[in-house]
Simulated assay, not measured.
Amino acid sequence: MAENKTQPTDASVDAFLEATPSQKMKEDAFKLKRIMEEVTGEKAVMWGDSIVGFGKYKYHYESGRKGEFLIAGFAPRKAALSLYLMGCMETKFEDLFAKLGKHKTGASCVYINKLSDVNDGVLRELIKQSYDFMKEKYPG
């Protein structure tokens, strides 16, 4: 059984964020790191070479596939900040998404062009509820 390609590393999160080409994106990335650390209580860790993750969970699917993945995270991409909120996509968060502000969603991602486009309190609540859901669903 193949392992996830994206694994936690010892690489420096701050060095990765510092290398973000756009100054505004860099500022938003450092702010988002602080928000996620505060909300999750987890220290930021690099996952692979481009994702900043917070916490991890172990999964085991009926297919036999098992592994670990981050509970919450983000990646500063060229077009937008990609937020990985694993619990959001499995539960009903329509009310929070409706109040969040300008964003798009994908498979397990929330895309935000810049943090000023979204409501800070709603973003924090979305991260918290998603994180708490995953901790409850995948204890230990």
Rank of each mutant, 00 (worst) to 15 (best):
M86W: 06
D10S: 15
E42T: 10
F16Q: 03
H60S: 12
L85D: 00
T91W: 06
F97S: 04
S82F: 05
V45T: 09
T6M: 04
N4T: 12
H103F: 06
D120E: 15
G101D: 05
F54K: 03
V39M: 03
V118Y: 01
I112Q: 01
F133S: 14
T91S: 11
I35K: 04
V13F: 05
G64E: 00
Y111H: 07
F133N: 10
Y61R: 09
T9N: 07
I35W: 03
K92S: 15
K56A: 10
F54C: 07
A75P: 01
K56C: 06
M46P: 00
K56R: 11
E3T: 06
D28V: 05
F30N: 08
E94Q: 13
I35L: 13
F16D: 01
Y84Q: 06
D120P: 02
S12V: 14
F54W: 06
Y59V: 07
L100T: 02
L126V: 08
E62W: 04
Y138M: 09
V122M: 04
E90N: 15
V45Q: 10
L85S: 03
M46T: 04
S22D: 12
V45D: 02
S22A: 14
Y111S: 06
S108P: 01
I71M: 07
I71P: 00
F30R: 06
C88W: 00
Y138I: 08
A80F: 07
G67A: 08
E3Q: 09
E42K: 08
E136P: 03
D49V: 09
D28I: 05
K114W: 02
C88N: 08
R34T: 14
S22V: 10
Y61T: 09
I51M: 11
I112P: 00
Q7Y: 04
A79N: 07
K102R: 15
V118T: 04
E125C: 11
K58F: 05
R124I: 10
Y138P: 00
M25R: 11
I127Y: 00
A44W: 02
S82P: 03
A44K: 02
L100H: 00
L126N: 02
M25Y: 03
A75M: 05
A107K: 12
I71N: 00
S50G: 13
M86S: 12
G87T: 06
D120F: 13
K58M: 05
A98S: 14
A44P: 02
A98W: 04
K102E: 09
Q23M: 14
V45A: 07
A75E: 03
K31Q: 11
I127L: 11
Y138F: 14
F97K: 07
E38N: 15
K78E: 13
I112E: 00
M46S: 04
N113A: 14
K43L: 13
G106D: 07
R65T: 11
